[in-house]
Amino acid sequence: MNDPGWMGVLIAVLGGALRVSTPFLFVSLGECITEKSGRINLGLEGILVMGAMAGYGIAYLSGNPWLGVLAAGGAGLLLGLLHGVICNLQRVNDIAVGIGLMLFGLGFAFFLGKPFVQPKAPNLPSLPLGAWSDSPQIQAALQVSPLFLIGLALALLLAWAFRHTRWGLVLRIVGDSADAARAMGYRVDLVRTLATGAGGFLAGVGGSFLSLHYPGSWSEGLSSGQGLMAVALVIFARWNPVHCFYAALLFGGASSLGPALQSVGITSGYYLFNAAPYVLTLAIMMTTCSPRRTLAGAPGELSIVR
């Protein structure tokens, strides 16, 4: 503890990145699948909160947090499929449906979640990966959730699957050119609906991390826009699952920058540091989006780039 300053901030930001990034990671991986198929689901914020509520509720009722995670994924899957099915209708705008779904998910989760605000549900365990160190800060920073590791594995798996499996190829064809996919005999709407459902599943699991691990309880103010930021993050990551992982870490670290700096006594400008994740979102949007060129790696059927 002879140097509590920058080393402390570094450890805190690293720990924060590991703690805070998981919801970003799951939501962005989910959105990555959905967008690869050529649709955008802006409703992930609502799905995230719905997942948080469902996960907490089921964990409380069953006493098993992993069942809660599954329930959260299930709730997300249903909402994702809902988005997919509605968007299959003629001339329905996926962005508008997404906004509707976001509001519906939030409201419905608050409505159903009332009885679960007070009780305490069992939390997910965490793995003490910092046990090798005698520094309590490092031990605390490396208390890693298994969900984080699952997310990492999933990012690698998805990156491989997009490139090397038949399913990945079909998904990309549908996302890049619906006409080509139809010509090849693939059912475009079905693929997109399933992709949106899968994206919803992952977003729901991301929500269960919020309520079952960190911060670890259900309340109506649980999400502060993580679901929306994750959508921006996918664009930043150029629809690449491994980049989604890095971006999620970056956003997690940015979220913990404000508290970490204040805790070592750097007290001026905390409004700016607290706003770091949002500033980062804006900066990414400004640097990556231009009306004059399409984004490298963007699925061709995506309504924002078409």
Partner: peptide, 16 residues
């Protein structure tokens, strides 16, 4: 009401 940030604040203070 910012639950994630509040939890981060507790963690970083405990670290210090």
């Amino acid at each position: 009401s910012l639950p994630v940030k509040e939890a981060e604040a507790v963690n970083s203070m405990a670290d210090q």
